[in-house]
Design a protein around this nucleic acid. Structure first.
Lengths: 340, 340
DNA sequence: ATTGGCAGTCACAACTTGCGAGTGCTAAGC
DNA sequence: GCTTAGCACTCGCAAGTTGTGACTGCCAAT
């Protein structure tokens, strides 16, 4: 079992190592922190911590470095995150307050978060949730090519191309447009999926084939709401912290370009009430991110749907500070998007 | 003046250096290429090239490396770019052919291009050009918050949020929706800007204030068509080629996150008929990209508007190969987007 | 349980050395 | 006049060497 003081020692080891990037030894600890005991005692505690695999020595007779397990214990012990400074709160409000649309809100959010944390920031687009169909538009791009546009009352807009269609005239187009809008307008997306299949039957035979295609296309758009998109900012911060990665940052950059991977990773993280979830180092091994940690929180969009946002960086990061930033931004975003 | 053979020597120096990343000496040249002369002669030619500042020696008595000026001469001499292999053509077609909408086309394009070149690939969204208004939608997100959506017949969709509005009921909303669609539908964007200002006058006084706001919002959307967006892929390739940059890749990554910068850079590049423009090294100094080269070509979108696409990478890159890839993808994209 | 002391370990930086690649120059050859 | 062989010279780089300093682990004393 690790003593209370040993945990305190772990804490300062993590803090000092994160701050200085250098293995920390017993002597530095007693110098920089007032433990009221001698270096030798600290050494005994460190032996305990090493026994439990919370810290490790990069090479014999050098200072110690936290292991992933050590970071985990450290993070789990963090309970009272101290709030942001007034200036930082101010920055969030002024920066996000000027957004013009959802795209803009999220773009600004990730830029802000990456600046607050000096890490890569990620945000997931909110899913449709219980949105309703606001309007359906069918646009002719070329004689045989159409685009369908689906607008929901949560402000999301989806487009889809259709090609290789024949025999559609202006009258038919009007008929289709009217029929789909009539049938779908105001319906929830869940209902719309059902309704869609019945529309083609009500269309004049001459255009029924096209109607079926359009229905299929819209169906895909409705279905597509689940595979959300992701916005990202601050990838340059990875280059700054490059030396925290054993090899090149190439695999890390590759991994974060794969949005699918990140969405899956986000999806696996369980966020407890109002908090921030943390995945550390090897816990992300399967995603090609074994040397990075991910912090995530959730925000609520106007439709009531919950989406994720967070930061990603080297295992050696300032967890305390970054958790505060992620939580604060998530909360503010929820407030901003709330139906006020 | 540089002799004909000296230029040939420059050519092989560039090729060998790009391939091996090592300064190339006179001996290696005669070994690997059949010039029919001895190393000493090559040395004389190299002295000529050095005189003209086309090559330089990293340190006394080591092989030579092309200067930016050397790359420039090399690129300008490239005339007959040999076409892509059949397999690569096939890859382009199958990969881009499955796209579902414009977002998807461009996302696939940059991914493809970054794979073909092993560099960072960029593509600019086509601007509205001479598009026409297809439909205007006004969506209520919350009692005092609206979203305006503008759809054009080129398939572009723009959204904009409005906040702090009061006194809008369902009837007013219908009136606005009808009035704006009636007034704008089918108009070119240039005309729409004028028309917009006249709409509020036709609205019942109770909603005129809101109508003015909506008109302003739509006006901004029309205006926003000129500041285009950019998509990007393959940033990880920068990490792969990291050693080609003198310091860290941090400044480079920072620079390419600034889309404004890149759009400006693209804007400054003049693309001659059906070709590929190249900016080398220090020519991009002002953009914080003094150690990178940018290749760009243009493609034509359905509206007839021309947008840019290209790749960015370290000065030491395979210009020949990459120019071929950029040109081929640009051409295919134009064909794909053409009204066929 | 805590402490001072001490021997032992090991990474790292500074320095030295030898090697090899490559150049520039000169004088002779075609 | 262009080309060539030969040779002295220059350096970067890798390998080997040494000294230093930071730590640890253990032991005996408090």
């Amino acid at each position: 079992m690790v003593s209370e003081r040993s945990l305190a020692v772990l804490r300062v080891i993590v803090q000092d190592y994160v701050a200085s990037r250098e293995p920390v030894g017993s002597k530095t600890i007693v110098e920089r922190h007032s433990f009221g005991v001698s270096a030798a005692t600290i050494r005994n505690d460190m032996a305990q911590l090493e026994e439990e695999e919370l810290i490790a020595a990069p090479h014999t007779s050098s200072g110690r470095v936290p292991t992933d397990k050590g970071y985990r214990v450290f993070v789990d012990q963090l309970t009272d995150l101290r709030p942001l400074s007034a200036g930082q709160r101010q920055a969030i409000e002024t920066f996000l307050g000027q957004s013009v649309d959802l795209d803009d809100v999220l773009a600004r959010t990730v830029r802000l978060l990456s600046q607050l944390t000096n890490q890569v920031a990620l945000a997931q687009y909110p899913s449709f949730g219980n949105a309703r169909v606001r309007h359906v538009e069918i646009v002719v791009l070329a004689p045989t090519r159409l685009m369908t546009v689906l607008i929901t009352d949560t402000g999301r807009v989806d487009q889809h191309l259709l090609d290789g269609l024949h025999g559609l005239d202006d009258a038919g187009l009007s008929e289709l447009r009217a029929a789909f809008n009539e049938a779908l307008g105001g319906q929830s997306l869940a209902d719309a999926t059902q309704t869609l299949t019945t529309v083609p039957a009500s269309i004049a035979p001459a255009h029924r084939a096209i109607a079926t295609e359009v229905a299929r296309s819209l169906g895909e758009q409705v279905a597509a709401n689940r595979q959300d998109r992701l916005v990202m900012a601050g990838a340059a911060n990875l280059a700054r912290t490059e030396s925290d990665f054993s090899g090149s940052i190439f695999p890390v950059l590759s991994a974060i370009e794969e949005q699918v991977t990140l969405l899956q990773l986000f999806g696996e993280m369980e966020i407890d009430d109002d908090g921030v979830a943390v995945r550390i180092g090897h816990e992300n091994e399967g995603f090609g991110l074994g040397e990075t940690s991910v912090l995530a929180s959730g925000y609520t969009a106007s439709g009531g749907s919950v989406a994720r946002l967070g930061v990603l960086g080297p295992t050696r990061m300032d967890y305390s500070n970054n958790m505060v930033a992620v939580r604060a931004v998530a909360r503010y975003l929820t407030r901003l998007l709330a139906d006020d």
